[in-house]
Amino acid sequence: MDDEVKKEIILENYSNPSNYQKIDDGSYEKYNTNNDSCVDNLNFYIKIEDNIIKDLKFEGEACAISKASSSIFTDNVIGKSINDAITYIGEFENMIDQKPYNEDTLKDACCFCDIYKQNNRRNCAYLPYRGLKKYLENYINK
């Protein structure tokens, strides 16, 4: 992915984030995810039916990278089964850990392929992934 294209994707998702909405609806469950090292603090609202992530919204305070990453992440995750979402998170982890990864699975999230070069920003991009991973681990064990 060309550097300018990556930047455009990030800025567009930051300026007009998808699924950026506070939800007050009993059919959603809320979980919070934040970064210890900075003040990123996002609430996610998830609706799972028949092991499918039917909807995922987010809102809160975050830097450009966290917000853009959460926007792309929610777009990619909605409609996935729990297992596919876990696979998707694994592919993103592979990418930021500089391991081989599947670009077709990650789609626009590939704009963060160079983020490993900046450790603080790496945590920002990974924020929504870390949050859902933790949520799903608890969900499966429930």
Partner: peptide, 22 residues
């Protein structure tokens, strides 16, 4: 309309060290 951490990150590109956060 720009998050403090993003401002700090921008300044860092010019070797300026400032703190962002709470």
């Amino acid at each position: 309309k720009i998050f403090s951490q993003d401002v700090a990150y921008y300044l860092n590109k010019y070797n300026v060290c400032v703190r962002a956060g709470n």
